[in-house]
Nucleic acid binder design. Structure first.
Lengths: 356, 356
DNA sequence: CTGAAAGCGCTTACAG
DNA sequence: CTGAAAGCGCTTACAG
């Protein structure tokens, strides 16, 4: 029965007939408490509905029970403003909140400027105010070399998402290059001989990795790099549409497109429609992202599903372990999934083929 | 130049040659500080890169600079698990984080069980741990009568989203009934004489209000309530599809459908496609929700756009004002927007019409 | 295995 | 207009 005024550790101590420190040991699962005393304390906690005040715990020198997850401000806000949504953010919360809850932790999601010149100060301010037990850096912040150092100096463990493993921090990632190579190889296996990669922003390190996978698969197939071309999108519908239209209307157009995000893949579908190209009969389209809407598109989009929630969950659990004395470095590779829906299929029969 | 070890109010006080309390007055924008002293302190703060520790502020008896936003656990997690996403959550963050940032606040998003029996205890635990300066309750928690009382007992201001204004708390809402009436009237104006409302869950108070608007518009048009029918969906694609198919295959099928969320509207589009009904030529479809994907559907969906981000932003700003001594009650009505895209149009010509 | 003491970094009354 | 004191609710060494 929680009383009106908040119940403190002192109330529990009195109710259980022990000192504050003993109660503290019990709630922190410390050693050196006689089982019967522990039970008495736990009974008092339950009876009083006691929940420790996190601010006080922090002030006393303990943990803050807070994980700070940091996202890129510009892109996030731009997506919000445009009504485009941020499924990535939703997925982060999914993994982060679910995992944090399990350990009695709370997730705080914040936005930090992309600009490498202002990011350190902003992060610095956030951790000074919040004193989180760990920080999660997502792209492109995970590619900023200064941020993890700043965190390390202050003794705050840090996890980077979508970053190739280093040795000093906790790196959680999926194999972007392999994913790009797999979808490329799959399209080649379907008979496509001219493929295009619609790139997002080079600011995101993933672009580089995916592009490498695209090239690798092309080379490995024997088709050679000449079979592939790269269009520079910027993750946005309109600009991508323009680039794609240029690609599809040229002399020897690609028969398969790989877009770095769903929005650009949708742009491809609209352009295809305008040009009278049937998907997937005349043009195959695949994406990296797999936001909720893709299942409802007509036809439903083939896409690489990134394990976003799983990566954030893994980051949280590592960070929590680190702040409990575990290692503050390591690397975790999580599997992606290639979800083949209806926008990819066999290449159209060539007008004229030389080889038998 | 922030030093390695964290800089405290004491460091600032020494650097400025004043006492801690004076620094405290400056950072809290308190009165009674000579302009020149204030400037000196501000200079020291800037020079040292001082940012107050929120835990300490809270412990000292000040504000926590935390707003807790609470969402329904079951539905949120179900959406996450199913890969459906939660645009609502993303929108909340949009409004909440942007507004909180402006005031030096931080938003914490948490999940609380829908079950009215366990919700109070869970909320109670969260506020005992976090001690937020304000709490935002979203549907269906905003319809729980116990929660705001519990909060009030602990002196925490509370904002309810999507709730008809009471007089005791901060209620932020849009006129759901009016929105339903407007879209209904619009469809009637387009010549539709048989309309159906695909309802979500009655657990969400909005359903009731929207249904009332639907009925009201029907009555006001002279068509009468007999012209409208209600199908019970549960916000889910599959179940809605079944209900909708039943509706559309009966003797005198509706020519216009209003779904309570986008997913059910998409279900309607799929059923229409299967039944060979052209949208909007033979069937008009409208939705309440307007998630990002609807602009990319084929054809793009007509929908009521809820001011979710704006409601959460308004809630935050009211809550922050309340915790600074402002009123902890009031009501804010925010405008919705009917976005007519391509799924609604004139009613199909009737097989036989009696009136001229 | 348990408790008395000190202190974390602030803020709120309370003096002057 | 400014400062000395007390205290918020915990935890960490440190004794016993």
């Amino acid at each position: 029965m929680a009383s009106r005024a908040s119940v403190t550790i002192e109330h529990v101590a009195q109710a259980a007939g022990v000192s504050r420190q003993t109660v503290s040991r019990v709630i922190n699962k410390g050693p050196n408490v006689k089982p019967e005393v522990r039970e008495r304390v736990e009974a008092a906690i339950a009876a009083l509905g006691y929940v420790p005040n996190l601010s006080a715990r922090r002030m006393g020198g303990g943990k803050s029970y807070l994980i700070l997850a940091v996202n890129d401000r510009q892109r996030t806000i731009e997506n919000w403003r445009a009504g485009r949504g941020n499924d990535w953010v939703d997925q982060m919360l999914h993994g982060g909140i679910t995992e944090c809850e399990k350990h009695g932790y709370h997730l705080i999601f914040e936005l930090i400027d992309t600009d490498p010149a202002t990011a350190p100060r902003q992060l610095s301010n956030a951790i000074a105010a919040l004193r989180p037990d760990g920080v999660i850096l997502t792209p492109p912040h995970s590619d900023n070399e200064e941020l993890p150092v700043l965190l390390a100096e202050r003794g705050i463990p840090c996890a980077r998402i979508g970053r190739r493993p280093g040795t000093q921090f906790i790196d959680v990632f999926m194999d972007e290059e392999e994913a790009a190579a797999e979808i490329t190889a799959r399209l080649i296996a379907l008979g496509h001989m001219r493929l295009a990669f619609i790139a997002g922003s080079p600011e995101y390190g993933n672009s580089t990795k995916r592009l490498a996978g695209f090239s690798r698969a092309l080379a490995a197939s024997g088709l050679g790099e000449a079979a592939g071309c790269v269009a520079k999108g910027n993750f946005r519908f309109a600009d991508a549409a323009q680039e794609i239209e240029r690609l599809l209307t040229r002399a020897d157009p690609p028969t398969a497109l790989i877009a770095e995000n769903d929005e650009m893949a949708f742009a491809a579908m609209h352009v295809a429609d305008r040009l009278g190209l049937e998907v997937p009969q005349q043009l195959s389209i695949a994406s990296f992202e797999d936001t909720p809407g893709v299942r409802f598109s007509v036809p439903p989009l083939t896409a690489i599903r990134q394990p976003t929630a799983e990566m954030i969950a893994a980051a949280c659990s590592q960070l929590i372990a680190a702040s409990a004395g575990g290692p503050a470095h390591g690397s975790i590779k999580l599997p992606y999934r290639l979800v083949e829906r209806a926008t990819t299929g066999p290449a159209p029969a060539p007008a004229k083929r030389k080889t038998g």
